[in-house]
Nucleic acid binder design. Structure first.
Lengths: 185, 185
DNA sequence: GGGCGCATGTAATGAGTTACATGATTGA
DNA sequence: TCAATCATGTAACTCATTACATGCGCCC
């Protein structure tokens, strides 16, 4: 009674931001797997880390759910391409996932917080030295963010990068203050 | 030639911050699994999320590697307890993991960044509305952080919580600025 | 000729979560 | 007596990553 042969939509709950990402890049234009993966691993690797097999598998799952359609293309004797296109069902899913993603506020877990809890088990000198090392590494990664490749007019990669930069800067500020506080004792 | 029957230490590379956490709580005092899990799920659930079976399994693995030792205790007819104690090998591992953890600077991936990239696929009004919802949820979680349970003198849970608060505050500030920027167009 | 880029996948591995299983004690 | 707490675990499931497999075209 809850099952229908022609569902009105796709159940949003079983998809996450990875699906949003794949659907999103297909909103821009039809692309084949290699292209999509290239974009993820090279263009936006600083924003999200998704590996090749994961992308391929998810794409397949999206196809099974009729969120995307596939068309095999052959150019000369090159390897055949599976060109994916977003369907109307997929567009609907995309918009729902996008709204959910925008509204969500869950900050991730910071693995570095564990060490902080046990700071007293190191000598003050060692603790400060460790945090200073963390700080200089963070500074390096902040500088590497400045070389952001240019982006097209549709995707707001700049927003995501800016956000990461802001968070990194905040982390840096906190580290600076904390080191100063530890040194003043 | 690289193998030795009596290893000088434990290979650090196969352990992460979860092991550091378990070893760390055992640095404070000997505890049984239930106690450790209770601490993790109730006291510091805002800092790290580790589930019961994960903790038990890791504890077992640490024991196999002689980082902790186990002693079964029975109090009356209550369920028997497996009381874990950190060994000298474990203490060594703890200090190495602690230094590595302090020095590391890897910021986690922010799932919310994906949505930002596709902001242009929503109307400006919808986009702003979504981000405002994200902001108010974040404000709520910031307020809930103020009720921090008191901590003992050894563990610097306060540092970890402070850090999370600082990052949440930074996220809030960025959101505020970004919303203002979007509204000004 | 050799290596890299294109283009698709599969298989094995590992790690963590959910749900389940057990059984005694304690408090309402 | 019923639920919650104490105390330990196992089994099944999901999910992502690493490494592997294949094969053509292009460039040095």
């Amino acid at each position: 009674m809850t099952m229908q042969t022609a569902p009105a939509g796709i159940d949003v709950s079983q998809w996450d931001e990875r699906a949003l990402l794949l659907l999103g890049v297909l909103m821009v234009e039809n692309q084949h797997g290699y292209q999509i993966n290239d974009f993820i691993e090279n263009r936006i690797c600083r924003v999200i880390a998704m590996k090749k097999p994961t992308a391929y598998a998810l794409l397949e799952r999206l196809e099974k759910n009729q969120a995307v359609s596939v068309q095999v293309q052959q150019e000369g004797s090159r390897p055949p391409r599976k060109v994916f296109a977003i369907t109307s069902l997929g567009r609907d899913l995309f918009h729902q996932l996008l709204r959910i993603n925008l509204e969500q506020s869950t900050l991730p877990g910071f693995a570095g917080d564990i060490g902080l809890m046990f700071l007293n088990y190191l000598s003050p000198e060692e603790a400060i030295l460790g945090l200073k090392e963390r700080r200089s590494r963070l500074e390096a990664s902040l500088e590497s963010m400045d070389q952001v490749p240019p982006h097209g007019p549709i995707l707001r990669i700049d927003l995501a990068v800016e956000h990461r930069r802001a968070m990194t800067q905040a982390e840096l500020t906190w580290l600076h203050d904390t080191i100063a506080r530890l040194e003043s004792i």
